[in-house]
């Protein structure tokens, strides 16, 4: 082996070791544990049960399938809202980009992203409290609506989670789409103006096609984030009422760290990873196609 090869190896080996320790080993160990009936309190007594953990959580129990459904429902609804509101906000900031105050406003707008989801959850827990929260107070004072447990009933709880999630992440989508709008050449707007295009034509024929790759990038990043959604649920509803807001990550946490059923918990973690891989692979493929202008040119 020559000197150059040794040098290359010396650079690569630490990275490989790091990956092996931090990602690959835990993943393989999770797969291994998922094939056992194993409890943290008696790991020495674990025994092999094959695919039974997967069978139980996917087909015999209603909670994990509901958690998958809830995760995607929350992801789909939140991301849709974030794209629509994010685009409107991006357009507003795009139009006022020449004003000095726009920088200040933009900074203020992105503040929710800077907060940890745990804090956001806590703040909304107080806001939505039926007896002490400001939301109920406003509704009762100005509209005569009786105090209501928004996080205590299945459908309102789902809507609340989507609203909290969207509130925090819409600014992220806004920043991304604003960056996209900034890339649209000014000539296109001038040409559209000469041709007599109205705002709707400009939006649908120039702006949206131009920022599509940004939208898709936003979807991919947010989808990964939504699949891992945990903190807000943990603080506000703990998956309740019933299993109305149970999501995959919270189910895994509950199984692993409350029931200490590490076999079942590992099985759900492996399923989450597989789902994440499938979803992100599809999304990245779409993103590449858009970038190459294969379908959307």
């Amino acid at each position: 082996m020559n000197k150059e090869k040794i040098e290359k190896l010396l650079f690569i080996v630490p990275t490989c070791l790091f990956l092996l320790t931090i990602s690959i080993f835990p993943f393989l160990y999770s797969v291994y544990l998922s094939l056992f009936q194993a409890k943290l309190t008696k790991m020495h007594k674990k025994f092999f049960i094959g695919w039974e953990n997967y069978q139980i959580i996917l087909f015999e129990d209603d909670i994990f399938p509901t958690a998958i459904k809830n995760t995607f429902m929350i992801a789909f609804s939140s991301i849709t809202i974030e794209i629509i509101l994010g685009f409107i906000m991006a357009k507003i900031f795009f139009e006022i980009r020449h004003l000095k105050i726009s920088n200040v406003l933009r900074t203020v707008t992105i503040m929710p992203i800077m907060l940890t989801p745990l804090c956001v959850g806590l703040v909304f827990l107080y806001i939505l409290n039926p007896t002490l929260g400001i939301f109920s107070y406003i509704l009762e004072t100005f509209f005569g609506i009786e105090p209501f447990a928004y996080l205590g009933q299945p459908i309102p709880a789902k809507i609340s989670i989507i609203a909290i999630n969207s509130w925090q992440w819409t600014p992220f989508m806004m920043i991304l789409l604003l960056a996209g709008l900034m890339t649209v050449p000014n000539e296109q707007y001038e040409a559209a103006k000469i041709d007599g295009a109205n705002w709707f034509h400009v939006m649908t024929k120039i702006e949206i096609p131009s920022i599509l790759s940004f939208v898709l990038l936003g979807i991919v990043l947010r989808l990964i984030e939504c699949i891992r959604l945990f903190d807000i649920i943990y603080v506000t509803t703990r998956g309740g009422p019933g299993i109305a807001t149970e999501v995959m990550a919270y189910f895994t946490y509950r199984t692993e760290f409350r029931s200490f059923q590490v076999g079942t918990g590992s099985a759900s973690a492996v399923i989450i990873l597989i789902i994440s891989l499938i979803v992100t692979t599809i999304a990245v493929m779409l993103l590449r196609r858009v970038e190459k202008n294969e379908d959307f040119s």
Binding site: K39, K42, Q153, P154, P241, G242, R258
Partner: peptide, 23 residues
């Protein structure tokens, strides 16, 4: 016994479902 936490949690989910009208 050793399953107490999991058992109570399992029961608590179903009781809560009944109380919130989910079942």
């Amino acid at each position: 016994h050793a399953l107490t936490f999991e058992l109570i949690e399992t029961l608590g989910i179903e009781v809560n479902k009944a109380l919130t009208g989910e079942s």
